[in-house]
């Protein structure tokens, strides 16, 4: 029988896919927001199969919302590149810790070896920019829900159903590829009070479609 299981990646709160990197040049002080990438993974707890059962994974659908967090209190300019966000099944990696407070601790993990189980959730070269919200000191801004964020979704349908084995939980991941965004101080070299700027992913969840053989 076909069944579905929906699992949230994390609570409905903003999680930054960025960390910070600052450097000084020969001219005015520049502050650069940079991430080498971020990975969030979550296992699907299916509660089976048993050794007598034969379960098949049919497809995985991933949904999330993106928002662009800006610092409107400083006179800043932004430049750079945003990395794409990739999602999919990881059959060769364990689940990783996903967050501490409002920031991920996990830098990017290598993409799974089987890239046929991956797809692009958000491509900055094709998809539009998420709506902006103002950053604030401290924890992430609470997410009031659509339409204050850009809805993105993707589905991974393997050409052939994947066998599910007893005790092995499928892991679904989100990978944000390396990004670099500059926040250039233009006030005579004085570094502004930097809060937070970057891409938040909120309300992320995945739905596993599987067949339990009944």
């Amino acid at each position: 029988m076909r069944r579905t299981l929906t699992t949230p990646f994390f609570p409905d709160q903003g999680y930054s896919m960025f960390d910070f990197w600052a450097f000084s040049s020969g001219g005015p002080v520049n502050t650069v927001t940079y991430t080498a990438g971020r990975t969030a993974t979550r296992p699907a707890v299916l509660g089976g199969p048993t050794v007598e059962q034969h379960w098949l994974l049919i497809s995985v659908a991933v949904q999330a919302y993106l928002r662009w967090v800006t610092d409107v209190s400083n006179n800043v300019a932004v430049y750079g590149k945003l990395g794409a966000i990739v999602t999919g099944l990881s059959m060769d990696q364990p689940a990783l810790a996903t967050q501490a407070g409002d920031q991920y601790l996990t830098t990017i993990q290598e993409l799974p070896t089987d890239t046929s189980l991956l797809t692009t959730l958000w491509d900055p070269g094709q998809h539009s920019m998420p709506p902006s919200i103002a950053s604030q000191p401290g924890p992430s801004v609470a997410w009031p829900g659509p339409p204050s964020a850009l809805a993105v979704s993707a589905e991974i349908s393997p050409p052939n159903p994947i066998d599910l084995f007893p005790g092995v939980q499928p892991v679904v991941g989100i990978w944000m590829l390396p990004s670099l965004l500059g926040v250039l101080s233009i006030l005579g070299g004085a570094r502004g009070i930097h809060k937070r700027i970057g891409l938040d992913i909120v309300g992320a969840k995945f739905t596993l479609n599987y067949d339990d053989g009944d």
């Binding site: 001219g27 520049n30 430049y79 590149k81 945003l82 539009s128 920019m129 500059g182």
Partner: peptide, 18 residues
Amino acid sequence: MPASDEFPRGLSLAGQAS
């Protein structure tokens, strides 16, 4: 408009020394 077109791509650095 794609998100990549929202920002200027280039970073300019300038310096002066005597």
